[in-house]
């Protein structure tokens, strides 16, 4: 049962990145692509963003029910970036909804847009910093005689976490750009999104390098973790080899191929990272790690959680498919 729960945790996180991430990325793309494209962007994410957002709630619920020790320690020591993440989630969702539903389109639109874009940018940054904080190995072991800085700032305020944050921002922007190509309503718009996809792809690869460099700087043996895992190397090589394919698909403006390749590469990179870390979930400053197995709730809980997830997904996945299909085919007039 535990493995079913872990599988759901990983899949929910991946789907949140792929779908929810793309919605955040759309806000980032808006910053660079400008106001002309905001109609297209709004239209593309309006029917689906709330459903996409719920993958994150699933991740949280699986964490606190299935792995309460992980959830509790994250909440204790990563309080500040989690708080910033929440403020970002609330602001982004509200600003987007208000912009969409305000009956009078006047100056207030500029305010909504400003908040929407800013929060679309900083929310993924803090999401990445939380992920980095879990793995960088600065989690305090005990509350005793720690300063505020060492207990509540140091665990996440470092170059590695910042790099993971930047990587997340680039990844979300990249996913959004690739996704938006299929939503473009003019040649010029297609061109804009293709260019955004190219630029964010380059930024993403650079940010990926930065993650490895800062890991070494912070004394985290990320490179050796990857090198010692054949599977991880294979995944990274495959991701790199498929990059030219993606570029060709982008240049040819092949919507389905670009989306699949972008999703495939995200899967490979995140999958490889998960693979080399597995089953570690949190790293502490004394070099010890908390694994998914150590943090797992008792078997009775795992069983109920797995049951809820399986039944839930039987209900959710067909409905979600229906939702996405409904809004991805042209209207019959």
């Amino acid at each position: 049962m535990l493995f079913i729960v872990i599988a759901f945790l990983v899949i929910s996180l991946l789907f949140y990145v792929l779908f929810g991430g793309a919605d955040f990325g759309a806000g980032i793309i808006e910053i660079f692509a400008g106001k002309r494209h905001y109609q297209t962007i709004s239209k593309a994410i309006a029917p689906v963003w709330e459903a996409n957002h719920i993958w994150l709630i699933l991740v949280v619920v699986i964490l606190f029910m299935g792995f309460p020790l992980i959830y509790a320690d994250m909440s204790r020591y990563l309080h500040i970036p989690l708080l910033a993440l929440l403020v970002g989630i609330v602001l982004r969702g509200c600003a987007f909804t208000f912009r969409h539903y305000d009956a009078i389109k006047d100056q207030s639109q500029d305010w909504y847009t400003f908040i929407f874009r800013i929060s679309s940018l900083f929310t993924p940054l803090f999401l990445g910093m939380v992920a980095g904080g879990m793995l960088v190995g600065r989690m305090p072991v005990t509350m005793a005689d720690g300063s505020f800085y060492s207990l509540f700032i140091a665990p996440w305020f470092n170059l590695f976490c910042l790099a993971v944050g930047v990587f997340t921002v680039c990844l979300f922007a990249f996913l959004a750009a690739v996704y938006l190509i299929g939503e473009a309503r003019s040649e010029e718009e297609t061109h804009t999104f293709v260019r955004a996809a190219r630029n964010s792809n380059i930024a993403l690869v650079l940010a990926g390098g930065l993650v490895f460099a800062t890991a070494a700087w912070e004394g985290l043996p990320l490179v050796s973790l990857f090198i010692n895992s054949a599977g991880a190397i294979a995944a990274l090589v495959l991701a790199t080899l498929s990059l030219p394919l993606l570029w060709v698909a982008l240049v040819r403006k092949h919507v389905v191929a670009s989306r699949l390749l972008a999703g495939f590469q995200t899967l490979l990179v995140l999958g490889a990272w998960f693979w080399v870390e597995y089953p570690v979930a949190l790293r502490y400053e004394n070099g010890k790690a908390l694994t998914l197995f150590e943090a797992a709730a008792p078997a009775a809980t795992q069983q109920q959680l797995a049951l809820a997830l399986i039944v839930g997904s039987l209900l959710i996945l067909p409905s979600l498919y229906y939702l996405l299909r409904t809004f991805k085919k042209p209207v019959r007039v």
Binding site: I57, M65, G66, I316, S319, F327
Partner: peptide, 27 residues
């Protein structure tokens, strides 16, 4: 939450499903 999560997470896990369906149906 460290102690209660494993005990009382169950309604939350079902709530997640209900909430998901709600969002999809609303869309």
């Amino acid at each position: 939450m460290e102690h209660a999560g494993a005990i009382i997470g169950m309604p939350f896990s079902w709530e997640g499903t209900a909430f998901f369906l709600e969002a999809i149906a609303l869309g």
